[in-house]
Amino acid sequence: MFTPRLPAHAGRRIALAGAAALTATLALAAPAAAHAEVEADKPQALAENVTLSFVSEAESDSAGFTEMRVVLPEGIAPGDVTLDEAPKGWKLKATSDGYNVAGPALKAGVDAEHKIKVRQLPNAKEIAFKTIEVYSDGKISRWIELPTGGAEPEQPAPVLKLKAAAPGATPVSPSPSPSPTETATPSQTPSATESDVAAAGSEHEAKAAEKDDSSSTGVVIGGVLAALAVLIAGAWWLVKRRNATSQS
């Protein structure tokens, strides 16, 4: 009985194909590369009249940003913040623990950038600005996690590292907590879009979102590993069959 001989490189090709499939699928299952960042023109503790620049990278191909909700760190009051720059038509509204900046939806794939002027930075080594991004299709991205136990969070909050305070620098008197107000983008027509949603998502929501993401990733990886095991087993069987045929 004639049995077709499997080419010597066939087994290797199958194994390589399986490995490539695993790599591609794991890449899709990994967290999005998009993130939120903050920078300062004077990143120094107790510095006054500091401009903070925020950038939220777009991670949707079908919807654009409509709002950013920012929780201010301890030492910066909502009344100490004014809007410096933002997308056309966006305006700032103070909240009890931070501010919202919102307006007409940006185009899909366009990063959201805005700047605020802060009366004075706190006396700290670093400060975090928990940020929630809202898209025109209702999707919400929460960049609110802080490092714990040395582990890098999947959805890290923007963190600004500060130099030590200048000699003789002292804290200015704190500003009173204001009632919610709006600051229009300079030289722009204020948007009719409004949002009274609180600046930060609850810890419960954050943990639930993290649990859902972990579960989905685990299911995907488990399925990929099972498929790879089948491919490797098939390659091993074909190579063994070839060797047996060669010896007969």
Rank of each mutant, 00 (worst) to 15 (best):
E210S: 14
G11A: 12
A10F: 14
A199W: 06
K211H: 14
I221V: 14
A36L: 03
A19H: 15
S248E: 11
I116Q: 07
A157G: 04
Y135L: 03
P78S: 03
L225W: 11
A58I: 01
G218T: 12
P153L: 00
T95V: 04
G75Y: 04
I14R: 14
L162Q: 07
K125F: 11
V172K: 13
P7Y: 02
A227G: 05
K139I: 04
P158H: 05
V220F: 15
K139T: 11
V110S: 14
A36P: 02
R12Y: 11
E145H: 02
A86Y: 08
V70I: 12
A32S: 09
P156K: 00
S216K: 14
N100W: 05
L6K: 14
L146S: 08
I221L: 07
V224Y: 04
I132E: 15
T181S: 10
A63C: 03
P174N: 05
L106A: 00
P153W: 00
D80N: 15
D196M: 04
E57P: 01
G11N: 01
I144C: 10
V230P: 04
A30Y: 00
A244V: 07
S177H: 11
D97S: 04
A233R: 04
T193F: 15
V55F: 04
S136V: 04
P104I: 04
P153H: 02
K240Y: 09
P153T: 02
D212E: 10
W236A: 15
Q120P: 04
Q44R: 15
P43A: 13
L83Y: 00
P171Y: 08
A30F: 06
S173M: 14
A86K: 03
L160R: 06
G201W: 10
A124F: 01
A94M: 08
A198N: 06
P78G: 00
W237I: 12
L106W: 01
E85R: 11
N100Q: 07
I221Q: 05
P190Y: 11
V219G: 07
P176H: 09
A184L: 06
A94G: 02
G18N: 04
N49M: 08
S173P: 07
S141K: 09
A199C: 07
S187L: 15
